[in-house]
Simulated scan of single mutants.
Amino acid sequence: MAETADRVDLGGSLRALRRRADLSQRELADLAGVPQATLARIESGRSGDVRFRTVERLVRAAGGRVAIGIPGDQASDDRVPEVVPVPGVPHDGLRDEAGRRYPPHLDAWEVHGPRDWPGAWWAGWWNLPPQHWPRRLPAATYELSRERRDRRRWGERIRREVTVRRVTNDGLPGTCWRFVAELPDGRLVGELRAHERDPRLLYGDLIDAGEREIVLDGVLVAGPCRLLGIGQRLVAALTAEMERAGIRVAHAVADFGGVDLLLACGYRIEGRGHYAMRLDRAWLGAALLPGPAPLQP
């Protein structure tokens, strides 16, 4: 925690540190050896004069550091380590019905409909008008499960950090298109492959010689990174590249979740009786093996 203005928002800084450390108010108070009531007064701004030792113990217990200096120290002396400001609590402005802040170490969000409220997972309200909802929705809600909370925050970090690009130097023919989704450290979390085809192979001379079409071969996203929008970003990158190349039509065969993905990206089901086909040579070989010889009397 560093002082960057004439007055430090001590309560806001402690809430931000607690969120970063994923600690409840009681957990931080126990770690620092400070009464929870004292911490609650500091965070709410009701404690006007706080002892420096109390602040130091709370900050250190939350994984932070108290820094004291004069303007220019960090710029003029390379030996002084840089102090990184703690990101604030995203939902610090939300209040419950009693006007209280939601716990900063949790993830709170506004509730606009039943889908925003995990407490309504059991209710089939989704298509009902509000006047027929059996319960009134809260203004906001939060996630209590640490496991789901960590997974949600991890997913948000992946969304922020992942980048999508077209690979052009992998030795593939120019008619083969490859897009990858990767993290800053180079880890691959998604891939899309497609190829161009000449529609005259299907329709003969009825199609202009300059026409080209794209066939989407497949979209793959690493299991833990699914449902984070990476597949849609890969398909969007393909669509943008098609526009630059002047290609208007793309074809795909999809099943299971791939159908929903492509529908969300603007594709439509043509209903021409396409089938997803598979050749499994191991299965074929097993089917052709002779059965066991009959038992001899």
Rank of each mutant, 00 (worst) to 15 (best):
A16M: 09
G246M: 11
G291C: 07
I158K: 04
I247S: 01
H91S: 07
R7A: 14
E147K: 10
G45Y: 13
R19Y: 05
R65H: 12
A67Y: 03
D30R: 15
R26T: 13
W121K: 06
R153Q: 10
N169C: 03
G271E: 08
D6H: 13
G69W: 13
R20A: 04
N169T: 09
L295A: 15
R166N: 07
G124Y: 02
T54V: 09
Q25K: 12
G291I: 06
L284V: 13
A236Q: 15
V180F: 01
L238T: 03
V59W: 04
A254W: 10
R19K: 02
V80G: 01
L183C: 00
A120V: 02
L14F: 09
E56M: 03
W121S: 08
Q232H: 14
R15C: 08
L206Q: 15
L183P: 02
R200M: 06
G204V: 04
H112F: 05
T4M: 13
T239M: 08
W125D: 03
M1K: 07
R160K: 11
R115N: 12
D96E: 09
R193A: 04
P130W: 09
A250N: 04
P87N: 01
A29H: 11
D78F: 06
R7Y: 12
G45T: 12
L39G: 05
L10D: 06
P290M: 11
P297Q: 13
E82P: 04
L39E: 08
G69S: 14
P294E: 15
E56G: 02
R79Y: 00
A236V: 01
R15Y: 07
R187M: 01
R65V: 11
E161N: 05
G285E: 12
E56N: 11
R157G: 04
R159W: 03
E97C: 05
L28K: 02
E191A: 14
G93R: 06
S44E: 15
V219G: 03
W133D: 02
D280K: 07
G174Q: 15
G63P: 03
T168A: 14
W117R: 00
D92G: 10
R197M: 14
L202T: 14
R166Y: 09
G186Y: 07
A209V: 02
R60G: 00
G64A: 02
N127K: 03
D185K: 00
D170Q: 02
A222R: 12
D185F: 10
V253C: 10
F52D: 08
